[in-house]
Amino acid sequence: MTQQTSAPPPATLADLIHRLDHARSTGEREMGTETGTVPLGHYTDRHHWQQEQDMLFAQWPIVAAHSSEVPAGSALPFDALGVPMVVTRSGDGRVRTFFNVCRHRGMALVQAEGPEPAKAKSCKTLVCPYHGWTYGLDGHLRHRLHAETFDGIDPATLHLVELPCAEAGGLIFVKRTPGPAFSAAGFLRGLEEHLQWLGLADMKVFRKIDRVYAANWKLTVDAFLEGYHIRVLHRDTIYPFFADAYTVNLDAGPHQDSLVARRRAFEAFETPRDRDALCKLATPTQFLFPNTFLIWHPDYVSLIGMFSPAAGEVRWMHTMLIPPDRTGDDWIPHWEKTFRLIEETVFQKEDIATAVAIQRGLHSGANAGLQAGRLEHGVLRFHRGIDAAIGGTLVPAGEG
């Protein structure tokens, strides 16, 4: 990938690189301090799932899109949080989010077309297809057909219902529940600097997948929070490129930022000065609590949202982001092949298929919980974060 900056990495990322160098040079893997068990009900219990919906997905900022997905003068429908929403960007560049619901009779204003993942539509206004009520991209009601017939109804009370929305590091965050504004940079707890250095905002969308699978959403999150499984599950696909369970991790509030060592780091390690060099030595992986991953492959990025439509289902939204200088037609065969390898083979046939198989096994009665060793400390930390958020002792940073 083409590096956008020659600046040194942020101090916290530089420390991760130093720790990776220490681990590979000493042969000492970084581990957690304890083992633990995740209760079975965290994956199967309907009441626990409802608590997650109420305290996580309704209250926390969630990544809705990469910034490039919503250009100026466009609107993107988004419904992965269980309610119809629309993300807009007006001509001044400001991004906003509203309930995708007309204030007249409740009709959706912007709809996805066909089975493919929704894309932003170029528009100057949002026009209801039912009666033609028209709203600006700022949510203000601009026109009502036969307005004179709505006696005594103040049009100022009929603007779209706005939802908290903010942007940082190339990502658009939304909240499902109306309320005060929040800072996306504050929410990221210092990881925005990492994303800026890596050049996330400059990336462009190549392909997007939006599918539902029969597994609890946390099973797919669990898989991406540990490198312990790579040697076995991915033996014939990506393991030939990776060292065995050498991962260093930074905790940034409830978020996690990791470097997963590639074999090349053990062959010739030079302190990387740019993104390209870093991605040859390791795979940077940011987990943005509660449900989003950024995985930096050698020449592209996977942005993955893991949503929860039901206790036994995960809605998997994978967006492949590519460098801006590699978007021409001559690059399409390369990206098509690359996308098939990562999405259809590694993710679908290995990671997701494993999650589906585990979900089936959860109902067998064989286990009261799922075990996690010291190489899987990120999994335990994630589940403790969920428990704390449900209990009200963990709240998102950047509020107010």
Rank of each mutant, 00 (worst) to 15 (best):
E34M: 07
K119A: 12
T88E: 12
E30F: 10
S90N: 12
Q51E: 15
A64E: 09
P39D: 06
V83F: 02
A120N: 11
G36Q: 11
D79V: 00
V70H: 04
A72I: 01
P71K: 03
S67C: 07
E113A: 13
R96N: 11
S90C: 11
L56I: 01
K119M: 07
G82C: 10
A72S: 14
A75D: 13
H47T: 13
V38K: 07
Y43R: 03
D92R: 08
P61I: 01
E52T: 01
T37D: 12
T35M: 12
F99N: 03
E113T: 14
H42A: 10
A112M: 08
E116R: 13
K121Y: 01
I62S: 11
V95F: 02
S68R: 06
L76V: 04
L109W: 01
A75H: 12
G32F: 08
N100T: 07
L56H: 08
H66E: 05
R46E: 15
T37A: 11
E30R: 15
R46H: 10
G32M: 07
P39Q: 03
P61F: 00
K121W: 02
R89H: 04
R105C: 11
S67T: 14
E116K: 13
P61S: 04
P115Y: 04
P77K: 07
A108E: 14
F99Y: 15
V87M: 07
H47E: 15
Q53T: 08
H66I: 11
Q111G: 01
V87Y: 08
V110I: 14
V83P: 05
D79G: 15
L56G: 02
I62A: 07
G36L: 07
K121Q: 14
F57C: 02
K121A: 09
E28F: 01
R105L: 13
A80H: 15
A65H: 09
V83E: 11
V70N: 05
F98W: 05
V101W: 03
Q50K: 11
A120I: 02
G106L: 10
T37H: 12
M85F: 05
E28W: 00
Y43V: 02
T33C: 00
H66K: 05
D45T: 00
E113H: 12
L81S: 09
D79P: 01
V87C: 09
E30A: 14
E113G: 01
P61N: 05
A75Y: 10
L126I: 02
W49M: 03
L109T: 09
K124D: 14
Q111F: 00
P61M: 00
M107L: 08
S67D: 14
T97L: 01
A72L: 01
R94N: 12
A118N: 09
E34F: 10
V101D: 02
E52N: 02
